[in-house]
Design a protein around this nucleic acid. Structure first.
Lengths: 254, 254
DNA sequence: CGGATAGTTGAGTTATCTCAAATGCAGTGG
DNA sequence: CCACTGCATTTGAGATAACTCAACTATCCG
């Protein structure tokens, strides 16, 4: 309804650039793929086999992108804005599994099979693209390199999941929140979205709470302490890291 | 050192039976694979391409199977006994990511790339088999079906990881422990290792604590309550579920 | 300007932790 | 076979991190 939809056919190269962010998994997945065919002419790139259809959508903040039980035939890539992927219990308790930034797949797993039980929701206004999974799989057959890369991305996601469990099971509130901030900063930095320790920070405290397994009230208190201790400063939906060293210490980083 | 090693060559069929447990992922991975070749003769199964080497190892309880930084070229399958896969912080805090039962791969991810940072440790005496990853990958090329199945197993593991995060972030101690028990019972039942609600239960309370993000002391208290409430009974390293319905309720199961 | 959503702060509560002591139990060496 | 050492479990008492509730303020958006 609120989605503006554009349908296009595209070459591999343009798929890549469609993936927005040169540091995101989506871009990396396609980067340099096709080198196996470099002896052949550029026209090959334009052959029908390499064409893929996508659609572009834009939705306002707080809207749902995928519903938990949706069994979609599409693969989604975030192109602009922040989103969040979570599971919710029937009584409303919610756990955020990851924040999605430009260039992220909603989940690498979704490239191969529809994901279930997770819901994805826009934090800011979000622009995303959708590919048909079957088109994508055809590419996988065409370019075996892709499979190799896919598994790398997948592995990465799993390492993230392991760290999440460790954080939730074994770290204090201060550590969890500090690491969340550092983690986001690192990911944004790779995308060139950090400027002298300053980044956009559209998250509500409720998002931080659901990501760290805490309460919004408690998040507020911890962020308050962090600010009073001059570790960070939050203003106008942007966050400045004022004392990275100390923040890392409280995060028990490395 | 304590490992008794046997090297063998094996056909696909025998790989499968080597994977011990007809309900484990390892067995399922190979089940029915090769149907694409059913028009051909049985000799094909014995062709050199299908041979793979494995070694069998047995280690006593509490010994380490893989060290965190080990970058092994092998894929490991648990054949007998219980093991545990975990990450540990430098200060000793530890999070168990999964319990490994007969027929489980140490991690599906390890089939494609060496895993890092996780350590695997025997709970009971454990027998496991090791394949060379490169041999395994050769099979993947030979049998495209395998890739499809592999991704199913992988997806499963990810769903498990999501649930773990939800449990650790958003559930109470009682819920976490009850679910752990039910979860193990379900997995053991698939393997035919449960008899009238009774199962082997070699876990120390320390394992339960590290899996649920709690303290051994608190685990003891909760298990005590469960027993006093006649939900379960623990004796001689075996566990009986005496009131499954109520246990499920406290687990908030389904 | 008004209504909704988000954040702050304080007071009191609770789940879980820490510490510590007592008991049990299993394997070891004399 | 026993005493001994080391691990596992139980139990209680007290401490604390994080939660709930509630009131107040700030911010955003139409």
């Amino acid at each position: 309804m609120h989605a503006e939809v554009v349908q296009q056919k595209a070459s591999l190269e343009s798929i890549q650039s469609a993936c927005s962010c040169s540091a995101g998994p989506a871009y990396k997945l396609f980067q340099g793929v096709g080198t196996r065919k470099e002896a052949e002419t550029a026209e090959d790139w334009q052959s029908a086999d390499l064409l893929i259809k996508w659609s572009v959508h834009t939705i306002p903040a707080r809207r749902t992108i995928c519903h938990p039980k949706e069994w979609s035939e599409f693969v989604t890539v975030i192109c602009q804005g922040w989103a969040v992927s979570s599971i919710t219990l029937s009584d409303g308790r919610r756990q955020i599994l990851s924040f999605l930034l430009p260039g992220d797949f909603v989940s690498a797993a979704s490239l191969v099979e529809p994901i279930s039980d997770r819901s994805v929701e826009a934090v800011t206004e979000v622009t995303y693209r959708k590919f048909k999974r079957s088109d994508f799989k055809a590419l996988l057959v065409e370019f075996p390199d892709l499979t190799e890369r896919l598994s790398t991305i997948w592995l990465d996601e799993r390492a993230q999941a392991d760290q999440l469990a460790l954080d939730l099971g074994r770290r204090t509130a201060d550590e969890r929140i500090a690491r969340l901030i550092l983690n986001l900063m690192e990911r944004l930095a790779m995308r060139g979205m950090v400027n002298v320790q300053t980044m956009e920070f559209p998250l509500r405290q409720r998002h931080i709470a659901d990501a760290t397994g805490l309460t919004p009230v408690h998040v507020s208190k911890v962020l308050g302490e962090f600010q009073r201790a001059d570790l960070i400063e939050i203003n106008n939906r942007s966050l400045i890291i004022k004392n990275e060293k100390e923040l890392r210490r409280t995060a028990d980083w490395r």
